[in-house]
Design a protein around this nucleic acid. Structure first.
Lengths: 157, 157
DNA sequence: AGTATAACCAAGTAAATTAATAGGAATTAA
DNA sequence: TTAATTCCTATTAATTTACTTGGTTATACT
């Protein structure tokens, strides 16, 4: 029941992109370096984001990536689903088809459990817009900048 | 972001146990057969449930398993956490320690996302009591019993 | 007392998935 | 023309999952 590095790295990458975008395209190498993620791996993640229409790209020298929409129109849910696929705790095929269909009442009933988990996850991530994270990120950055190094710890937990 | 068969089979097994318990212990072999799960594998799952204090066992001939508490005092959350471990979308160690600590504001901010997902999952599963599922299961069973075979389909989706 | 039934335990294994790595082709600004 | 960059595909190492195997211990029943 864990997100893979796709979701973890990928969300950070999009956030980095959103924070550092000044209507110039941002090169993947910059994101990779700032976030400490292998550029080759990040390439695969951003490809998913592009396919999902979350980012656009400009090829060639001075090229890079940009958000395809304003940060307040992109939800964390959009991003995570693009990276991880469906966020349901079981495969749709299990819910829809008959891995122990109603011959087995218990299988049937547990499907409602999976549905409720799935809905709660999707509601949670759809409620968080990228813009919120950008604002929070800039705030944190500012705080760290103005206090002494030990202040970092307040953020950990 | 998927539950493993541990959670899926295990919840079904506990539900089966709850449905078929008439203050007699239920043998694992019966649960395994009814649910179509390998008994050897199920053994490993029920061991987790026992360690977590969700079921108790009686050894020897005529032995078996019983719920350790009334079904309305056991939540689906208790069961799934026993089987799957922590239901957070990332390892606690990532949230607590510094996989890119606040040197990297973005890592710092995404931790709040993981926390919100985690809370929503746990709230959802803790709100569902085993007793609810037992009632639902008995209802479904009754429905299937009294209608023709084709009625099964209403349950699938 | 003997036997069948059951829980309990530990180790091994095959398949799948994850998390990368590697190497190059296509595109474009300078 | 060159350097920077996206884009694409294939391979690989490590990890995790989903079992299987082969026992042992405990206990009711005869």
């Amino acid at each position: 029941m864990k997100l893979s590095t796709k979701g973890r790295y990928g969300l950070r990458a999009v956030l980095d992109l959103a924070v550092h975008a000044d209507d110039e395209a941002v090169a993947l190498s910059q994101i990779a370096e700032r976030q400490g993620i292998s550029i080759n791996y990040l390439e695969q993640l951003i490809a998913k984001l592009k396919r999902a229409g979350i980012v656009t790209s400009i090829r060639g020298a001075q090229g890079g990536y940009m958000l395809a929409a304003p940060a307040d129109e992109i939800s964390v849910g959009d991003i995570l689903r693009a990276l991880e696929g469906d966020l349901s705790p079981v495969d749709c095929s299990i819910v829809n088809s008959n891995e122990g269909n109603c011959d087995n009442a218990d299988s049937c009933v547990t499907k409602y459990v999976w549905k409720r988990i799935s809905d709660s996850i999707n509601d949670a991530v759809d409620a968080i817009k990228l813009a919120e994270l950008v604002a929070e990120s800039k705030k944190v950055q500012a705080e760290v900048g103005m206090t002494d190094p030990k202040a970092k710890q307040t953020c950990g937990k």
